[in-house]
């Protein structure tokens, strides 16, 4: 009896060591590659959002929910991740609906140009910190490149053990920290880098959205229909990568076919008041804080006027939460 007890203890100790090593070599996404942390920040939020944004960096860099709350009382969350592919958007939306049913889902259409998995690194940034669920497993299987294996995701040590030779103090200090890097999913950047030149617009082998993409767009649309959610399509005002007119036409056609609203905010840049000399932090790919606030003010107005949203500035409980968030937000805004 005593022997089996000893053996059990030994096994438990090793399992703990194993778990610790997994944690140790995983990127912490707290000071470096913070985009990897974004997906998990939603879970600890109070689920009171009438609007959910999904999509790639063109949503998390360009839309500030706190500004939309401040100006219109809209409660929203941006569940964007870097290089989020359309089937990942579907999985993330499906997971979100397990927590709450919003009134509106806003989808950025940029990812429609990617029919196949693109990059192993971006897959991890989107998926690593997501809670395990059927949706996550589906997303992993749909996103994996040939050289990847699902064990890379189940046991981080399989993918990240090569980091042992380059662990930094961040890896040790942040083993148990879990600090937010976003404001309701918005990633703030105050740098200014004006739009100067862009690469030549290249001719593509094909401009048609492929089957895989359309099938997931359909799934997203149906998911919203089944849950009585209004699906709104947008194209964020990022000037690069090029949003070909052929792409735009297909989105317009899809929106018309299914009676969806589609806002091409790129075409409305002037109306929004975007100054591409001042309002972008990387030469036009993403808006910075100043651009994002302008865009959020503009778009928040559209949301308020068209989608029957509640003004939660009048709600005590919600306004407490958001005012607290805003004070942190404003403090960091003012920091130089």
């Amino acid at each position: 009896m005593k022997k089996y007890f000893k053996i059990l203890i030994i096994i438990i100790v090793f399992i703990l060591c194993f778990i610790f090593l997994n944690k140790l070599v995983s990127p912490k996404y707290q000071t470096n590659l913070i985009e990897g942390h974004m997906i998990k920040e939603y879970y600890k939020e109070e689920k009171n959002h009438e609007v959910i944004f999904i999509g790639d960096c063109e949503v998390y860099a360009n839309f500030s929910p706190l500004i939309m709350y401040k100006n219109y009382g809209i409660t929203s969350y941006v569940r964007g991740t870097s290089q989020q592919l359309i089937w990942q958007s579907y999985g993330i939306l499906k997971e979100t609906l397990k927590y709450e049913i919003p009134k509106v889902v806003v989808l950025n259409v940029n990812a429609l140009r990617y029919n196949e998995p693109v990059s192993e690194a971006y897959n991890h940034l989107t998926l690593d910190k997501m809670k395990w669920s059927q949706e996550k497993i589906e997303m992993i299987n749909n996103s994996m490149l040939e050289e990847e294996s699902i064990f890379d995701y189940i046991f981080p040590i399989v993918r990240y053990h090569s980091r042992f030779s380059s662990l930094t103090s961040e890896d040790f200090k942040n083993l148990f920290t879990d600090n937010n890097v976003t404001y309701n999913g918005y990633l703030m950047n105050k740098n200014i880098k004006p739009v100067t030149n862009l690469p030549t617009k290249k001719i593509l082998g094909s401009y048609t959205f492929k089957d895989n993409v359309i099938s997931y767009l359909d799934k997203i649309r149906q998911l919203c229909e089944n849950n009585h959610i209004k699906l709104v399509l947008i194209k964020a005002p990022s000037v690069y990568p090029y949003w070909y007119s052929e792409y735009n036409d297909q989105v317009i056609e899809y929106a018309n076919t299914y009676n969806l609203d589609y806002y091409n905010l790129l075409e409305k840049a002037q109306e929004i008041g975007i100054d591409y000399n001042h309002d972008t932090y990387d030469g036009g790919l993403h808006l910075n804080l100043y651009g994002a606030e302008k865009l959020s003010t503009y778009f928040g107005d559209i949301l308020k006027n068209n989608y029957n949203l509640t003004d939660y500035r009048l709600d005590n409980h919600i306004s407490n939460i958001y005012n607290q968030k805003l004070s942190v937000y404003n403090k960091n805004k003012g920091d130089e």
Partner: peptide
């Protein structure tokens, strides 16, 4: 003739394009 920088979505890599008269190098 023209120079442009294309940063990646996350991470620290920056692609650069150098446009010449008849061709463009990235």
């Amino acid at each position: 003739v023209r120079y442009a920088e294309v940063p990646s979505c996350a991470g620290q890599g920056v692609d650069k394009t150098y446009t010449y008269d008849h061709y463009e190098i990235t």
